[in-house]
């Protein structure tokens, strides 16, 4: 465990060196990420400004949810870059060979060999929105609330990782470049809005099949609406563990099925 923590630091330092080697690229990427986030807020503003209440949620509650959703999302984005390109870089090009030759857990290497540090801009923005909206709503966020928000961020991020890890594993069995990741990635944004606006089927889907609701909507509702959603707050770690264990299991099976490239 300690060795892995120190290795994580090493990987991070290594990554930073690479990024700094391409300074221009890094600066552009920071700027565009911040731009994209500001644009996202503008969209929320435009859509919800006119309607005073959406599915029982006020404007500031919706922006609060939006800000909350940025937390697990940004941490996930920081770590997931290699999952996103896994099929192309690791399977098709055969780079996974190298991963398997190192005396370090293979998933650890995939997750931490690269980061997308600029995604953390969204973390800051999310915190800002949460604090601002809480004040407008008249909600006092105590230490307990913040602790819950931190836990929800970790769980949410793990849920995202688990889902995308499961999708990534498909490429262990199917050589073709599978196009299933981008559409599901787009589904992440579904969690930014109150789930009652969706039809029951999608709501069910987002709760129990692709449980993005547990990463964003349910924990937010638990903070804002309290009692009604307390049960979901308790279910959050359960969902996280179930999907996390499932994805690890499938990953292990996938690695055993890895067939490498020709030479």
């Amino acid at each position: 465990m300690r060795r892995h923590v120190s290795l994580l630091a090493q990987y991070f330092i290594q990554y930073s060196k690479v990024r700094l080697a391409y300074r221009g690229d890094f600066i552009i990427s920071v700027v565009t990420t911040i731009g994209a986030t500001l644009f996202g807020i503008a969209v929320v503003w435009l859509i919800f400004k006119g309607a005073p209440r959406v599915a029982g949620w006020t404007f500031y509650e919706i922006v609060f949810l939006y800000g909350f959703s940025l937390l697990p999302m940004s941490v996930f984005n920081m770590l997931s870059i290699n999952l996103y390109y896994f099929s192309e870089i690791y399977i098709v090009e055969g780079k996974f060979d190298r991963v398997l030759l190192r005396p370090v857990n293979s998933l650890f290497q995939i997750l931490f060999e690269q980061f997308r540090l600029e995604a953390l801009g969204d973390t800051v923005l999310g915190l800002f929105l949460i604090v601002t909206c809480a004040r407008r709503i008249g909600l006092e966020l105590g230490a307990g609330d913040w602790l819950f928000i931190a836990a929800a961020t970790v769980c949410g991020c793990l849920i995202y990782l688990a889902i995308f890890l499961l999708l990534t594993c498909i490429s262990f069995w199917m050589e073709d470049r599978v196009g299933v990741i981008p559409p599901v990635y787009n589904m992440l944004t579904f969690g930014r809005y109150p789930m009652d606006i969706y039809n029951p089927f999608i709501k069910f889907l987002l709760s129990w099949v692709v449980p993005f609701g547990f990463a964003t909507y349910y924990p937010t509702a638990a903070v804002l609406k309290q009692d009604e959603f307390r049960i979901y707050a308790w279910l959050m770690p359960v969902v996280t563990v179930v999907f996390g264990a499932l994805s690890l299991f499938v990953w292990k099976r996938g690695v055993r099925n890895y067939s490498s490239t020709g030479s």
Partner: peptide, 27 residues
């Protein structure tokens, strides 16, 4: 016992480098 085994062997694939592409060799 892949990870345990991996620390006891050395491997070179002539066709593909095991090193990090973008950083100095010493790193």
């Amino acid at each position: 016992e892949r990870t345990k085994y991996a620390s006891t062997i050395g491997v070179v694939f002539g066709q593909r480098t095991q090193l990090w592409w973008d950083i100095a060799v010493v790193e």
